[in-house]
Design a protein around this nucleic acid. Structure first.
Lengths: 141, 141
DNA sequence: ACATCATTGCAACTTTGTTGCAAAATATTT
DNA sequence: AAATATTTTGCAACAAAGTTGCAATGATGT
């Protein structure tokens, strides 16, 4: 097992200067545990930071390998914390994302890994995203 | 095997009135063969149809089961023709989508089906999207 | 504490998506 | 085939989402 890095240590580890916006937004992710969309962040850290700052912070975090994007069908990309093995430019988030149709929460199902897919000749995969949607364990009756 | 439906027959089959916009946009899909984003359609049928018409047409096609959406990480949902088994409200597009990082083309790899995923207790899947990105067979050297 | 470098907020803008309504086109009835 | 009913389209106006340049503020290392 590994020890959980503090917010500040995580930023320093990725050679980022420690600012209020970054500390705040990063802690939103670790507190929530699940994926967040830009809109979520804008509401939760309400009126604290400029929209532009949030855009740029998310962008920086993705570049540095702190968070990764999760594709979606409704024009609202979500972001979630990467596992520790992710480094700048090298994302290794081969787990499954589950989007609940009822509560809207996006879960990272770290336990389940994406099965290897055999592609047709000439196709080479660099990234694989598996997005499952349906009903989560809180919303089932 | 099944016989390929004409553009007009496809529209009628789904109880849609046959209009220029629908014929035109639907034929763009069957000619291209691959997935198209709203932006592609707006360019290809340039200045012919209002932006709003394209939005509404795509929405209608999705509702009727003529096309399906393909999630993406860059805030640009793409659309592709459904296989014939799709009906209104019931999409059965359990194939893999491949997005080429170089040419940007999104392929529907109909040959390969998405493997069944065992979810944690309490999670029920209604839809599964598998998006692979990398280099396609035209762009490899 | 100071100088340097990076980050933030503001303003202005572009792009993307939505809604209401009148005009035009399609479908339906006689 | 013409008249009516129903849908669809385009326009305008708007709302939301994302981008860029630049001055001011804040962080970092010596």
């Amino acid at each position: 097992m590994h020890t959980k890095l503090s917010i500040i240590d995580t930023l320093k580890k990725h050679q980022l200067s420690v600012t209020d916006a970054r500390k705040n937004i990063l802690s939103l992710f670790s507190e929530s545990g699940n994926a967040l969309a830009h809109a979520n962040i804008e509401k939760q850290s309400s009126a604290e930071f400029d929209r532009v700052t949030i855009y740029r912070t998310l962008q920086t975090f993705v570049e540095k390998g702190i968070i990764h994007t999760i594709p979606s069908s409704d024009n609202s990309v979500k972001y979630a914390l990467c596992k520790d093995e992710c480094a700048a430019g090298h994302h290794h988030d081969d787990h499954i994302h589950f989007i609940c149709d009822f509560c809207g929460i996006t879960y990272c199902l770290d336990q389940i890994t994406v099965p290897k897919i055999k592609l047709p000749n000439g196709f080479k995969a660099t990234q694989t995203d598996l997005i499952v949607s349906g009903t989560c364990n809180k919303c089932e009756q």
